[in-house]
Structure formats: C-alpha cells, structure tokens
C-alpha cells in the first residue's frame, strides 16, 4: 500500500528527513515512534502533500503510484487520509457543511455521483453517534470551541466518513485522557481491514496498548533507526529513545 524509499525532505531549506525507508502493506497497522524533533510531523505533512515540504530525493509510492506531484486534495480523493495532531479551527464554516463539501469533493474527483444533503446527514449522524459526537457539535463552526478530545474524535469521524485506503494518524493521542484514547482507539480498530493500511504516529507507547500494531518503527534524526514487532514499543517505554540502538531490523 505504502512504499517510502530513501525519502529526503527539506523544510525552509533545512533537511529534516534524511533517507526514510518504510513499507506498510494493506491490512496492516504500523506505528512510527520517535522523540520530539525526529521528523514525525514532517513525515505526515509530506505524505499529505503540504506546501513547503520539499521532497529533494527518494520516492513515495502509494498503490504503486508516485504521490509527489499530486495536490493534497487529489491525494485525499485517491484514498489518503491524515488525522492532524492539531486540527484547525475554522470559524464561519459549519462542521456538517464542511463534511458534506469534503465528501462530495472527493467523490467528484473520483468521478462518482455526489450525495444529497439528506443522505450525507444520515450517514454522518450514524457514525457520529458511536464517537459520542453530538448534533450540536456538528452544527458548530469547524473545531471552534471543541475540546482537545472532541477535535480528535472529529478527526476519527472524518476517517470513518471518507473511508481511506491509507490513513496516517499524527499524534492523535496527544492531549487526551485515557477515556478519550480508548474511544479513539475503538474507532481506529473498527477501521482495520484487509484492504486498508494505517500508520499511527506517536510519542508514547500508551496508545499502542489499545491499537496494537503489526510493526513498530523508531524515527530518529530523520531516519528509521530501528523496526520491530509490538514489543519494541514496550522496550522504548522502559529504556527511552536514548538507549535504543541498532540497525533497522
């Protein structure tokens, strides 16, 4: 599903990613862990195609296709989804209207028929309920006045609505209490499927108690330093990033 080869990325002329290699097959959930400043968010923004994240060498293949020339909206339409660490507050844009516009933009780009307002609302409401997202929240401006947990739940709701083939969750656990983490993890686990790949980016091992990954990768100083099974996360928790060493497995 996702093949990253020797990826070098610069932001504002400064090289942040220095040769990342990562392969995530369909049906698997991988975790990328790393200390602050290791390049975790750069990796997620680069995958999403944000302006200013310049791929200087290497490649990102998604379903065998090179993503690097595609705009963020085209990547979304092709089934890529990024749950942001800091979802953006947008006053004046109602949440439900945003969800409808986004869903139909993706459908339009794929040549599918757009869905009517009633159909979208019904679809959204069903999924929102399970995430404890109220009607009142959906009527509010996008993310405005939402608590940290509400914002993250809305990210998960979007993932469920857009049904991506590849989802990257960037520090979705940050700022959440344990109940909120469980709720988010339930949403993510419900999305696991043979045809979907997910990358969970996190600083802490805690989230991985609830979303158990097939593989764990340690990102440090712009490179994948080590890879292993779920036990690697526990090891990191015990020993800290400083004491993990060794070539990528």
């Amino acid at each position: 599903m996702l093949e990253i080869k020797d990826l070098h990325v610069s932001v504002g002329g400064k090289e942040i990613l220095k040769g990342v290699n990562l392969s995530v097959p369909a049906g698997e959930v991988h975790a990328v862990m790393g200390p602050n400043g290791s390049g975790k968010s750069t990796l997620s923004y680069t995958l999403a195609g944000r302006d200013g994240y310049e791929v200087t060498s290497g490649s990102i293949l998604y379903k065998g296709e090179d993503l690097s020339s595609l705009s963020p909206d085209m990547r979304a339409a092709k089934g890529f989804f990024l749950a942001l660490q800091y979802p953006v507050e947008i006053p004046g844009v109602a949440t439900l209207m945003f969800l409808k516009t986004a869903l139909n933009s993706q459908r339009r780009a794929r040549g599918e028929a757009e869905l009517g307002a009633m159909k979208v609302m019904k679809f959204v409401r069903e999924k929102a309920k399970a995430l404890n997202i109220t009607e009142e929240m959906l009527r509010r401006p996008l993310n405005v006045g939402f608590s940290g947990g509400e914002k993250k739940r809305l990210e998960i709701l979007q993932m469920e609505i857009f049904e991506p083939s590849l989802a990257v969750l960037d520090e979705t656990d940050s700022g959440l209490d344990i109940d909120a983490i469980k709720l988010v993890a339930e949403g993510v686990n419900a999305m696991r499927s043979d045809t979907r790949a997910m990358v969970v980016i996190t600083h802490y091992q805690r989230l991985l108690d609830y979303i158990v990954p097939q593989r764990v990768h340690v990102l440090r100083a712009g490179k994948i330093e080590k890879s292993g099974g779920p036990e690697l996360a526990k090891e990191l928790e015990k020993q800290g990033y400083e004491n993990i060493s060794g070539a990528a497995a």
Partner: peptide
C-alpha cells in the same frame, strides 16, 4: 493551516 486542512480533506484549492 486552514487552507491545508480543507485541502487535505479533498476540497480543491
């Protein structure tokens, strides 16, 4: 940030 957020959800620029 807002512009990127909307685009990352599939909304054309």
């Amino acid at each position: 940030d807002a512009l990127f957020y909307l685009r990352s959800r599939g909304i054309p620029e």
